[in-house]
Design a binder for these strands. Sequence first.
DNA 1: TCCGGCAAAATTGTGTACAATACGGCCCAT
DNA 2: ATGGGCCGTATTGTACACAATTTTGCCGGA
Lengths: 245, 245
Amino acid sequence: MTSRTWRCIQGDNHDKHRLHGHAGEIACAAIRDRLLPGEWPAGTRLLEADLTAMTGVSRTSVRDALRRLSNEGFLDCVANAGCRVKAFTARDVEAAFDLRVELEGYAVRRAASRIGTPAIAALPALCDRMEEIPADRVGKPRRCDHLTPLNHSFQAIIVEAAKNPRLAPHLADVTSAPVVLRTCRSCTTDKITRSMCHPRERIQAMQAGNDDGAGAVMRSQIHAGYRAALRDAGLFGTVAEDWQD
Amino acid sequence: MTSRTWRCIQGDNHDKHRLHGHAGEIACAAIRDRLLPGEWPAGTRLLEADLTAMTGVSRTSVRDALRRLSNEGFLDCVANAGCRVKAFTARDVEAAFDLRVELEGYAVRRAASRIGTPAIAALPALCDRMEEIPADRVGKPRRCDHLTPLNHSFQAIIVEAAKNPRLAPHLADVTSAPVVLRTCRSCTTDKITRSMCHPRERIQAMQAGNDDGAGAVMRSQIHAGYRAALRDAGLFGTVAEDWQD
DNA sequence: TCCGGCAAAATTGTGTACAATACGGCCCAT
DNA sequence: ATGGGCCGTATTGTACACAATTTTGCCGGA
């Protein structure tokens, strides 16, 4: 998992919109690239000195990076006690998916009555390109690499159409790599992405202009994708509905 | 607006669960105490040197504080260009309220079928204490000071009962001071809090055990509170429903 | 053996000096 | 007069040294 891939999944990089410059970014990316594939088990304490040696930048920048990664949800940091790799329980992942259902449902519901003609026209083209991607083959990662950005564009159009400027950060948090990737490491994001797709139905629901209908479609899709992802990851014998208590 | 008040609104302080120690906190609190009452107009650039002089701590800690305040939503920071006081548009506030409706509705809906007997027993007591608070008087802030923590406890019980560990941060973001306080500065939080309250109905809805019912009650309450808050703040001639396009 | 305190080591927090970058004014050429 | 490039200043970014804190290991006494 490279830094490039991360940015592809996480969305457009707003690198320049954050405090601090180059070195902090480098350290951040370097540490993240080790975090994502799970090179450090959950709970591992990260020493600033080690990270300094590893990244080559000064401890100041390393600390900067640690704080960012903490905000991104990768780390648990406590004052005077350093940072540890965050441990995600099955419950955390489920909670994130559950919130995602709410937020994406909300997004589609709002988008359905607000999306403009040019935006809705762009969606079928994206579907075409998604469906053009060849079926399963031995080199699986290639398919994920192709599908993910398209699906991301699809999502971005819907979120944009929802016309709620605060929505995107919340969605990013709940679809973030710490939750999704670290849990489903083995299965890559391929299956999740694929099962989340089914974009034609969403378009139809939005074109119908029925808010609740569009939301319902989205909800059922996300739930289905959620169940598939958990099943593929081998996390649970049973699935989504069973965690409700 | 003191730092104490902020913490009371923002919830229990998780000071110790963040990176860095004392000085950063001091600077953070000092700057926040000037941000909240609006001493710096939106768009004002904050020079690290000035803040160092103001707070008495070193620039390192000031930078630490700036990053936190940026994460809390008070500032817009760009690399090599410093931090500016974030400007909130009416649309931002509306968007936050709209998301809040979703999230609190979700919270109550989930809490309705999961809340335990001890938790639900604590709610009427909180209502009693809220209603015991004397009616309007000249010293308005006193009433707000008394009501806010109670209402916060009420909310906390519901969020806790929702049993979604990722919910709280999202709610905190969307009810955060930058959005709510800075906009409704003149009216204090009193009116918002009061109009958000009506806790008895929520309890009844939850006791009935009907998920959708409880959610509906919450939604209508929040919408009512939203409209009242905007009206009181004098932000709009018209209200909530009108921003839907 | 076990517990508490003490001291040394390891680690994080803070302050300061220096480097890199961005901003603004000035001069000069056209 | 105006536009572009240059240089000085202001401001942020980085590194490092020192201080404070926590952790660890040890020792002595009960």
